[in-house]
């Protein structure tokens, strides 16, 4: 199930970011907590954008859209 891999990756990332965020907020470091949100977002983007790009290039080649 290679394709399910990205779904579970994003879910795990969301869990990790939530835990880290709550932990840092408890420790009183709000700016670091917000920073982890942004880091989580960028990691997710780095994984999702190649998939969407592959989809659009394949659609372009199949439907001769160029």
């Amino acid at each position: 199930m290679i394709d399910g891999e990205i779904i579970f990756f994003l879910t795990g990332l969301a869990i990790a970011v939530t835990i880290l965020h709550t932990f840092l907020k408890q420790a009183g470091r709000d700016e670091y907590a917000y920073l982890t949100l942004i880091v989580g977002l960028t990691i997710a983007l780095l994984k999702v954008i190649p998939v969407v790009q592959q989809l659009f290039t394949q659609v372009q080649s199949v439907f001769k859209l160029y």
């Binding site: 779904i7 969301a14 939530t18 965020h21 949100l37 997710a44 592959q54 989809l55």
Partner: peptide, 23 residues
């Protein structure tokens, strides 16, 4: 969770993968 935007990304990635399988 604290990053609801990931939910949209999961749906986007899932939709893309499903169509990549059918293409």
């Amino acid at each position: 969770s604290k990053l609801p935007v990931l939910g949209v990304m999961v749906v986007l990635a899932g939709g893309a993968i499903i169509f990549l399988k059918v293409l």
